[in-house]
């Protein structure tokens, strides 16, 4: 839409543009700069071309971390989306229960990420943690520090606990926007509970679900803080996701060049996958 001109509007946008430039564009350029050079400290740089990129792309360590990320995102999407829809469907639509449920649902979202990590780190400990201790007392051999499977379960349960609420709230917003007439018509048409979900609720939630899946995918793919706090990427490399690997490379080993190349590849993967997700779902949406 070409609206009537008003050049003053651009002045309003200016501060935002500057902010974005400082916070995103300039750091990104720095990263690009590092990714094609080598340094041994002392502020001396040597041209490295695409070496770092080919190194990273052919490194098994990178492949493993990428696979872990994809597996992790896949699992949490498979759990959080259906679970979120299920909870949203069962939340009250009116009455006193509404504010109560909404506040209750929002609580995990309000906790800072590193605190979430800390909570679960303590919660899962077998000596003093309520969860870890109880499980062991019940005879389960649970120890996220030693056992890769247990570490995965802990990280996934933590993420589900932390983020399912987001899916719930988005779905709930979609559900309450459906006019009553639809439910009434379905009742009169003799539709089953499943039909109501399949033909009314799901189609009307389509758009918010798209947003939920995208957000959850992007966030889970970039997950860092919580597993870092809980498992530190271990045991071994079992929960070393791309972001953790990246930090290990950049800060732990101070390999700025490879780390920069890795960040860019990481960034491009997220961009690409998000785009694929979005396109697939939007085309699906258009087809109906």
């Amino acid at each position: 839409m070409d609206k009537t001109w008003n050049n003053k509007a651009w002045f309003m946008v200016l501060p935002m543009l500057l902010l974005v430039a400082f916070s995103a564009v300039i750091p990104l350029m720095t990263v690009v700069n590092y990714s094609v050079q080598d340094t041994f400290g002392n502020n001396q740089f040597f041209w490295a071309g695409t070496d770092w990129f080919s190194d990273v792309l052919s490194s098994p360590r990178f492949h493993d971390a990428l696979m872990r990320n994809l597996l992790f995102s896949g699992i949490i999407l498979l759990i959080e989306v259906p679970l979120g829809i299920f909870i949203a469907l069962n939340m009250p639509r009116k009455g006193l229960g509404v504010p109560f449920c909404l506040v209750f649902m929002s609580l995990p979202l309000l906790i800072p990420w590193n605190v979430v990590g800390t909570i679960w780190q303590v919660f899962g400990r077998i000596d003093i943690g309520l969860l870890g201790y109880t499980l062991n007392a019940l005879g389960f051999d649970y120890n996220y520090v030693n056992d890769p499977f247990d570490a995965w379960v802990t990280v996934i349960v933590m993420d589900v606990w932390h983020w399912t609420s987001l899916v719930v709230l988005l779905c709930y917003a979609g559900l309450v926007s459906i006019p009553d007439a639809y439910y009434q018509a379905a009742k009169i048409d003799g539709a089953s509970r499943w039909s109501v979900f399949r033909y009314i609720q799901l189609p009307k939630m389509n758009r918010v679900l798209l947003i939920a899946v995208l957000l959850r995918f992007m966030d889970s793919f970039m997950i860092y803080t919580e597993p870092f706090v809980v498992t530190g990427g271990g045991p071994g490399n079992a929960t070393t996701f791309l972001s953790i690997d990246l930090v290990k490379t950049a800060i732990g080993q101070f390999d700025v060049g490879p780390a920069a190349a890795m960040s860019l590849i990481y960034f491009l993967i997220i961009l690409l996958l998000s785009w694929v997700f979005y396109t697939v779902m939007v085309t699906n949406d258009a087809k109906g």
Binding site: A181, Y182, P203, K204
Partner: peptide, 8 residues
């Protein structure tokens, strides 16, 4: 109903 209710 007043507004068309169809299964999209």
């Amino acid at each position: 109903f007043q507004f068309p209710v169809v299964y999209d």
